[in-house]
């Protein structure tokens, strides 16, 4: 008896939900379905079911996300979908969830949203809504190739700059998947302002972030790009000053730019010989910089033979230091030894 009741209830529920889905589509499946704002702007309310059918949420009901639709016709303004209804730790439906949402809450986007900025992005602004795909799908808005465009939806000028930079060209035009997209430098859910000291693009961390690729372990060497860029930076006065927590000195971005990084031989590059004097001579850096000061080789490794005279100066001082100190040390030891001998003999 009880069994039969359960079964009937189940069938009823399924039937009701299918019916509910179908009922939403009575209106929203009509291609011309739209509404006109008070401003005169026309907003399409048409839902292409094939898009949802190809999304990672295929099979979910409209009301699984739009929970505030309980009657039809529903309220004119619906609340934004709250992804956390499913994507929370230990959820029973197995929706993926880590500490990502907490990271987001701490990020510049999360904080802007919490502060009431209506333009700040929530989950679906980046990940998509009806068209949401698994993050490893190449069609996902969050796929590496699509990320610049997704971020560029809001940060449009930066997108335009990035697209022409060495990194943008490599990724978007040449499909070099090792080339950085936005998230490679800025992070994803933990994205922060450059002025935020914990941000990956803050002056304190920028050399580390660039070093992911341009450091000794970096992927840049695969493309014939030198991999000693961060070690030579760390050994330079700029790098040492950073280790001493001074943030007024140059980091990678101060000279190379960031979204507009270009190869040195590009006439628009900040480190092109035509522009380097201006770059070094920024008003808060070396305003008195002369041409011969700025045009010399940067990122010099004194321990590399290719560095020329500096290498030999280093060698000279190594030999001089070891030789002198060894000599002085021997002299001291002999002197002490002789003294000890003399005092033993009772003089």
């Amino acid at each position: 008896m009880r069994m039969r009741v359960t079964l009937i209830l189940f069938i009823l529920t399924v039937a009701a939900s299918v019916a509910a889905q179908e009922r939403c589509l009575i209106c929203h499946a009509k291609p011309g379905f739209s509404r006109v704002e008070e401003t005169g702007r026309k907003i399409s309310l048409f839902i292409d079911t094939t898009i949802i059918g190809h999304s990672v949420h295929a099979g979910k009901l409209c009301t699984d996300c739009h929970v505030d639709v309980t009657t039809i016709p529903h309220a004119r303004e619906l609340a934004p979908v709250n992804c956390r209804r499913c994507h929370y730790s230990g959820n029973p439906v197995g929706a993926p969830q880590g500490e990502l949402y907490d990271q987001y809450a701490q990020s510049v986007h999360g904080q802007e949203v919490a502060g009431g900025n209506p333009k700040a992005p929530i989950c679906q602004d980046c990940h998509g809504s009806h068209d949401i795909k698994s993050h490893d799908s190449p069609d996902s808005r969050m796929a590496k190739m699509n990320r610049p465009k997704t971020c560029g939806g809001c940060h449009i000028e930066i997108y335009a700059t990035y697209r022409e930079s060495v990194h943008g060209v490599a990724l978007l035009r040449d499909s070099v998947m090792d080339s950085p997209d936005c998230a490679s430098c800025h992070g994803e859910h933990n994205i922060g302002r450059p002025t935020d000291t914990t941000s990956q693009v803050s002056p304190a961390h920028v050399s580390q972030t660039c070093g992911e690729c341009h450091g000794p372990m970096g992927v840049a060497s695969k493309y014939g790009i030198k991999s000693d860029r961060t070690t030579t930076f760390e050994d330079s006065f700029h790098g040492i000053a950073h280790q001493m927590e001074n943030r007024t000195v140059a980091n990678c971005a101060s000279c190379h730019g960031f979204h507009d990084i270009r190869p040195q031989d590009d006439p628009k590059s900040s480190i092109n010989t035509a522009n380097i004097v201006t770059t070094c001579g920024q008003s808060n850096c070396h305003p008195e910089a002369s041409v011969q000061f700025a045009s010399g080789k940067i990122h010099v490794d004194p321990h590399n033979k290719e560095s020329g005279l500096v290498y030999y100066i280093t060698k000279f001082f190594t030999i001089l230091t070891i030789g002198t100190l060894a000599g002085l040390f021997v002299f001291i030891v002999l002197d002490l030894f002789r003294r000890a001998q003399r005092s033993r003999s009772g003089k």
Binding site: G296, G308, V310, I313, F317
Partner: peptide, 22 residues
């Protein structure tokens, strides 16, 4: 340094650092 050549600067820096230690 702004008055000098970057190559000379590198040499001076190395010499200053090494002789300082010595």
């Amino acid at each position: 340094k702004e008055m000098f050549n970057k190559g000379l600067f590198d040499i001076a820096r190395e010499a200053h650092s090494d002789e300082g230690l010595l």
